[in-house]
Design a protein around this nucleic acid. Structure first.
Lengths: 197, 197, 197, 197
DNA sequence: CGGTAAACGAGACGGTACGTCGTGTCTTTGA
DNA sequence: TCAAAGACACGACGTACCGTCTCGTTTACCG
């Protein structure tokens, strides 16, 4: 049983409050960025007391992370019955598009936030990165069974090879994050850099 | 002439103060991390007035960036007359080693700091990332002329393919950053993921 | 009604904090004088946050004024059933004694502070000067009814004639502020400077 | 001998700088009051280096005092061959007029400044108060010889009786400082408060 | 008349205090 | 009995001045 023995007494926690907080956090993140996000600001915007927020999140970045992940969960995921490599390419195009949009800044901000807080890092890794890698891993495995990927390839390394450059350009901003780059990246990951023998 | 005609007037800035500030920043960064780095802390540790710091840097993260880059400039660089691919492998091993050490946390912290400050991002990109890429680009070019790399390879994409996964693992921490990974990564980047025809 | 319908919400202001602040201010005033009184010093001594002080007072001099006035309110006041002129003389002796003691420096400091801040000036005038004048005015009125003071005398002018020289000597320090001066002053105020006809 | 044997060597102090500083101080005093007067502000306004000011004055209030006294010395003094009491009355009218003008605020500010600095107090007393009292004392002495003032009157007390109320009203602001008050004050000081026998 | 010592302007220095903001905790009233 | 409001102790922020210290540049005197 998860129910407390005496039912729960007093005023129950407001689900509405949780929603208001996350909504306010999303707005403030969009308006002022992660650095401009404060507990006071969230409380004021959400018309909620600060202790109500502290009861559920330890700090403003944790609220931001929740808001980010909740928005992310609602995003559409690739699926279908196309050849795996086509699906993979489409997925990469999607990621590049998101990373080039304002949402990309949020992703970068979350990665940045995770550098100072191991708990946040764990949550971000599990609910954002690993979830995405699972999709990618499934696609690669399917491509392998279709004979399009070498059967001895180490998928974990392959996943880094394919996805990391997108994150790298997002975070460093040293080059474009467009279709051209994405295609060139995938092609090169497939055939390798080495000269033909 | 863009030179001011009468040179600069007034008491010149103290090089000693600059050194004390950066030294203090380095110590505090090592002790407490970027989040625990404050202008007041730096000033107190360096025995320097706060305005002296603000005269040269706009905020604590900018001090940290300067301290980081100055330390980085002193680091040894790869060189030698070995075959280019061997040199590249050695360089990647070195990067992986640094990223696995406490210095790696600093690098991650700088990338995080750059996400909130475009000026910082520019400095970091130019003085850290691009400098490293230049080395890598030279190696790849040499490998190309040695016939070890396909002559039509897009070096910019190849650089991302090879370096990005190291940064990705540093920032996300989803897998090891050891010799095994580095070797597997370079090998896969060279031969590609695609199944043999 | 100008009353808010739901009284005031939130945590009420702490009376303990107010007391601690005024007590600390009094100590620091005694130790270092008005010029050495700072908001930071008060906050540290009172173990109170600076915003707690700023919530109630706009600056250190306002705190000092409150501390001064609160101490003053506790001081004994002249009273009794003696002839009014005797009571007046006793009151003047008391003032001269206070002005010659360290408390006199505080009074002078408050007058000085009031010169730069009209709000402070108003409070000081109403709660210190006018209160004292009321006592004096009552005494003079009583003396008038006793036939000891001319019935057509302008009491406001008479009050200045009698009290101002004490303040003047306090502030300028050009002469003693003792019983001899006080008596001579009152006598001369009573009989006037003019030669007999 | 305390005199240096070879007179003073090097570049002599600039009289122009002294004038510029005092002029700037006067302007800033008029614009922003004593509280808003800073060494930096004076230096900037006078186009003079800060050390040039510190070489001649210990702090901003000392500059202000010098500026005030220098302006005061230039003011016209009462004189003439009228009956002493008429001259005295005219002098009091003049003081009341000055005290009611912006220049009065400066006088009040100087008295305030003198409360925190005994050196300043001494200078102000000697060069402003005592000088004025000398004039008053001379007038009273003359009135005495004319038979208009009692020959046994203590002039020091009489001076306080007559002048102090003007300063008092200047500093406290509890009543008007006009001709009416001045006349009533002098009349009452002459005939006294006491009822006729 | 050429050195030289001191004052000059400018402005950076190590500091202190300012007044504000945000933190995370607490204590009220109101629902 | 929990939520909102908001005060609390704390501490960092970035700024303004303080009074002192170099700088390179005049400027008058003295040898």
């Amino acid at each position: 049983m998860t129910e407390p023995p005496s039912a729960r007494r007093g005023r129950p926690r407001s689900e509405a409050a949780r929603r208001k907080v996350l909504e306010a956090a999303r707005e403030l993140l969009a308006e002022r960025g992660l650095a401009g996000l404060t507990m006071e600001g969230i409380a004021a915007r959400a018309r909620v007391g600060k202790p109500t927020i502290y009861r559920q999140w330890p700090n403003a970045q944790a609220v931001a992370m929740d808001a980010f992940l909740e928005a992310e969960d609602g995003a559409p995921h690739v699926s279908g019955h196309a050849p795996a490599l086509s699906a993979l390419r489409r997925q990469l195009h999607g990621i590049a598009a998101v990373f080039s949009s304002p949402a990309g800044r949020s992703t970068a901000a979350m990665i940045a936030a995770a550098q100072n807080d191991s708990e946040l890092a764990k949550v971000f890794r599990n609910r954002f990165i690993l979830r995405g890698r699972e999709t990618g891993r499934a696609l690669l495995r399917q491509a392998m069974s279709e004979g399009a990927v070498r059967p001895d390839a180490d998928l974990e390394v392959a996943l880094d090879l394919i996805y990391a450059p997108l994150f790298f350009r997002l975070l460093i901003g040293h080059g474009p994050l467009d279709r051209g780059f994405t295609d060139a990246l995938l092609d090169m990951a497939l055939v390798g850099v080495r000269a033909e023998r």
